[in-house]
């Protein structure tokens, strides 16, 4: 089977079969991470560069570890420590990395569509590690892997996503991916953080946080992205926590075996009380392991496609 495209730009570009192949591959990769010897030769003799124009802990480190666990030569470059700080354009920067023999460029950028604008111009494969408010496909894939480990089919499952919908690339990628696999996504957040036309992406807009979470099979909180807000979209943290947070009471409305996810980093006491973050239903920390597994799967499958051409 394999992946059709040279690049992984978003869930928009993946077929349901490709998504399932990534998830199945990731399940295998997870065994590598949890084994005593975290080394394979899948990417031996290959190179992976992470190019980050935005801060990151989980995504960047998990890509780096994923590539290293599979034996690749890996390097990192960030906007602040590079010629980007001297005003070099994205395209020039990307071409420079490309010409050093890089096989895969993993890129994060604050502008939506930034990886799309360079992918066609490079020999290297481009993996979107988050572009502005557009997509974060490997986050959605790791969220989906977390779900896939707990229910074997997505069809008919209710996934509740609460918080700052407007600025969230995570919600966009999840909405697209989950819809492709037949799940029902319900979203809720302040109206000031609800983008016009989101329902056209196949999600349902709930009337309240309770309505959103009720009978859900999985619940996801989203970080309030204060850094992307040009002006305040809600009056205070206290008010947000009271009307929009996933409290223990709200979480009780979900199905008894439902679990709680959050892409991190979390604003404790804003979108989630710490008690909820740490509760038995929370799989937030387990998601992090899945992040490495999914990124191993993505790098492996993209490299396999390159090798076969």
């Amino acid at each position: 089977m394999g992946l059709k495209s040279k690049d992984l730009l978003g869930m928009k570009q993946l077929t349901p079969e490709e998504i399932m192949e990534i998830l199945d591959t990731a399940k295998t990769m997870k065994m590598v991470i949890t084994s005593g010897n975290k080394k394979t030769s899948h990417l031996q003799g290959k190179s992976v560069v992470t190019l980050f124009y935005e801060n990151s802990t989980r995504t960047r480190l998990s890509f780096e570890l994923a590539s290293k666990y599979m034996g690749s030569t890996s390097a990192n470059i960030s906007a602040s420590g590079s010629s980007v700080a001297k005003g070099e354009s994205l395209l020039d920067t990307a071409r420079t990395i490309d010409m050093m023999g890089t096989d895969i460029i993993v890129m994060r950028h604050p502008q939506s569509g930034a990886p799309h604008s360079i992918a066609d111009k490079l020999n290297a494969s481009v993996v979107n590690a988050g572009d502005g408010m557009n997509e974060h496909p490997t986050q959605a894939l790791l969220d989906m892997l977390t779900m896939y480990e707990r229910f074997d089919k997505f069809e008919g499952k209710k996934i509740a996503i609460c918080g700052d919908i407007y600025h969230s690339r995570v919600v966009r990628s999840n909405a697209i991916g989950l819809a492709k696999l037949g799940a029902n996504v319900s979203v809720y957040g302040p109206r000031t953080m609800m983008p016009i036309g989101i329902e056209k992406m196949g999600v349902t807009i709930a009337d309240s946080v309770e309505d959103c979470v009720r009978d859900a099979d999985a619940v996801m909180g989203l970080r309030v992205q204060l850094e992307r807000m040009k002006s305040s979209l809600f009056p205070s943290v206290a008010e947000y926590a009271k009307f929009y947070a996933i409290t223990p009471e709200v979480l009780k409305l979900a199905k008894p075996d439902a679990f709680l996810m959050h892409p991190g980093p979390c604003n404790h006491g804003v979108e989630l009380p710490t008690a909820v973050y740490d509760c038995d239903q929370s799989v937030i920390n387990k998601q992090v392991t899945n992040g490495v597994a999914v990124r191993m799967a993505v790098l492996y499958l993209l490299m396999a496609r390159r090798n076969n051409l």
Binding site: G132, M133, G197, K200
Partner: peptide, 9 residues
Amino acid sequence: GEVSTSIGI
């Protein structure tokens, strides 16, 4: 609109 929301612009 629908398109700007979908592509995050």
